[in-house]
Simulated scan of single mutants.
Amino acid sequence: MHIPIRNTARLRSAAAVPAAGVLALALAGCSMFGGDDEGGEGGEGADQAQPVNAGKVEPGDADARETIASQDVSTLETDLHVALHSLARGGETVELTFSVTNIGDSESDIISNTFSPGGDRDVSGVKLVDSDNGKVHLVARDADDACVCSGGLRFLALEPDDSVLLSATYGAPPSEVETLDVKIPRVGTFDNVPLS
């Protein structure tokens, strides 16, 4: 069978339209259709889905956080440096920010259960004490009774000289209170920490 050239051209362009559409969809990637590219929204490629540093933050040139109080402790065969960086009032809450550094010679996973009662793997055991008014402030809880604090510490292990930044939120004391004591399990109490 002989097909005239003009019909062949028409057949080729008719076939090219769906082929071009399929090619365009293939090039657009699966993220357009909610595929499993693990890159989340924004169409990132799967090769960018996992951090190249396994989630650890590399040291940079940023200025160190101000330390308002610190203490070295040895607990459960681990040497730690605990530094308080801020106790900041914000409306009806206070946020405590502190860091823990492994100053020992070997890896330590002690952080995972050091700061919480009952093995919650968070920092819910850290308390603020208002000694002037005889009040103890526990970490705030959300509607699901979850700690409004750093959590997910179950698999946290610190190599020597590694640090982790932690925080916890509390109900604010009366406005005339200018200092609070910060009581951290297995570390001790930091007295008269100024509220900012």
Rank of each mutant, 00 (worst) to 15 (best):
A20H: 07
A20Q: 07
A20V: 15
G21I: 15
V22W: 12
L23C: 12
L23T: 13
A24M: 12
L25C: 15
L27C: 13
A28T: 15
G29P: 04
C30Q: 13
S31T: 14
S31R: 08
S31A: 13
M32V: 15
G34N: 09
D37R: 08
G40F: 03
G40V: 06
G42P: 02
G42S: 05
G42M: 00
G45A: 14
A46N: 10
A46R: 08
Q48P: 06
Q48D: 13
A49K: 04
A49D: 05
Q50G: 12
N53L: 14
G55A: 07
G55P: 03
K56T: 13
K56F: 08
E58N: 11
P59H: 07
G60Q: 06
D61C: 10
A62T: 12
A62W: 09
A62V: 11
D63Q: 15
D63Y: 09
A64G: 09
A64T: 15
E66W: 07
T67G: 00
I68K: 01
A69N: 02
A69H: 00
S70V: 03
Q71E: 12
V73E: 01
T75G: 05
E77Q: 14
T78C: 07
L80G: 00
A83P: 02
L84C: 01
H85L: 04
S86M: 06
S86H: 03
A88S: 14
G90V: 14
G90T: 15
G91R: 06
E92I: 10
T93P: 06
T93S: 15
V94E: 03
V94M: 04
V94H: 02
T97L: 10
F98D: 00
G104I: 03
S106Y: 10
E107Q: 09
S108P: 01
S108V: 01
S108E: 03
D109E: 13
D109V: 11
D109L: 08
S112H: 07
N113C: 10
N113H: 13
T114K: 03
S116P: 04
S116Y: 00
R121T: 11
R121A: 14
D122P: 04
D122Y: 02
D122V: 02
D122Q: 06
D122L: 04
V123S: 02
S124T: 04
G125W: 00
G125Q: 02
V126T: 03
V126D: 01
L128G: 00
L128H: 00
V129K: 08
D130Y: 00
D130N: 09
S131L: 09
D132T: 11
D132F: 09
H137P: 05
L138F: 09
V139A: 04
V139C: 03
A140E: 12
R141D: 10
R141Q: 15
D144G: 12
D144S: 14
D145V: 11
C149R: 01
C149D: 02
